[in-house]
């Protein structure tokens, strides 16, 4: 072949087509060769330093079916170190929260953020079943994400509610009032809820039958307002807004509440409305929360939208 090479000294392979098309024998470019050797070196070095080669692939990872690498690195270790860091950061926050009041926490945006994130989980575990995953309420359970409060939306009131629980009580009036009176009072409450003023006769009856004793002179659930702004209630619903404590609300529902009352022992069909107590000073009873958790929850509920 070389004898017939019409292009001597050109470093071709001796393969020709159509007289002058030919295959040359050029070496690959230098940068390419460098990259090739560098990758090979990288591969070997990496394999020496880090876990890589399966030696006994039929063995599980735990029993070491692979080379460990000189550095002894493992992803589990890295994960554990990360978790330690998280715990350390958390401990910092937790220590500060333990020494602070709910008000002080709310005044510190960074701490508030941490508290809300942490309380969201507690809320999901302990409160969401009744009050809804976002505090949006459920038929029979009050909304926590609005500014309509039975017992008050200040941090102090919320903390008190969570710690001691609540159990609103309303007398059953089925044996006290006549059918006609119940009907008029139920209409009266619906009228108020729909934004009406309420007739004079309605207010008179409401007063006469002692409804004001719990629902207040203005039927808004407020019995008195202390000089420092604290509101005194017995948990009686505000009848002057369109929010119904017992859904679906309206005439039938109001009538039922008036007839059978709320949480009345021995009365069939009475409304069941119990907020369990979560307070536990020792923090070790099952289903109970320690004071830090309650503090976090108070901040959380307060920030749901209706804190006062």
């Amino acid at each position: 072949m070389a004898d017939h090479n019409p292009f001597p000294g050109e470093n071709n392979t001796g393969h020709f087509w159509d007289d002058n098309i030919r295959e040359l024998n050029n070496p690959p470019p230098q940068w390419w060769m460098i990259a090739l050797w560098a990758s090979l070196a990288w591969f070997i070095l990496y394999g020496l330093l880090y876990p890589m080669f399966p030696v006994m692939p039929w063995q599980s990872q735990e029993s070491g079916g692979f080379t460990r690498g000189i550095l002894g690195w493992s992803s589990i270790q890295e994960f554990e170190r990360g978790m330690e860091q998280v715990t350390a950061v958390r401990a910092q926050y937790e220590d500060r929260i333990a020494d602070m009041s709910a008000e002080e926490i709310l005044a510190d945006p960074g701490l508030t953020q941490y508290t809300l994130a942490s309380a969201k989980v507690i809320f999901g575990d302990y409160c969401a079943a009744c009050h809804g995953s976002g505090g949006q309420g459920n038929p029979g359970y009050p909304v926590l994400a609005d500014d309509d409060w039975l017992y008050g939306g200040s941090l102090a009131k919320i903390t008190e509610t969570i710690t001691n629980g609540r159990k609103g009580a309303m007398t059953a009036h089925k044996d006290i009032l006549t059918e006609a009176e119940v009907d008029r009072l139920a209409r009266f409450t619906v009228e108020l809820a729909d934004g009406g003023e309420g007739s004079e006769a309605g207010w008179a009856l409401f007063n006469e039958k002692g409804c004001t004793a719990c629902h207040g002179q203005a039927a808004n659930g407020i019995l008195a307002e202390l000089p420092d702004g604290t509101i005194v209630t017995v948990g009686a619903a505000n009848l002057t807004d369109s929010i119904w404590r017992f859904e679906p609300g309206g005439y039938e529902s109001a009538r039922h509440t008036i007839l059978y009352g709320v949480n009345q022992p021995g009365i069939e069909n009475t409304r069941d409305a119990v907020m369990p107590a979560f307070g536990d000073a020792g923090g070790n009873l099952e289903g109970k929360l320690d004071s830090n958790q309650i503090k976090k929850l108070a901040v959380y509920v307060h920030s749901l939208g209706g804190g006062q």
């Binding site: 459920n138 038929p139 029979g140 859904e247 039938e252 009538r255």
Partner: peptide, 9 residues
């Protein structure tokens, strides 16, 4: 959650 027409469970 489910309650009837008068709001009882």
């Amino acid at each position: 959650h489910v309650v009837d027409a008068v709001g009882q469970p």
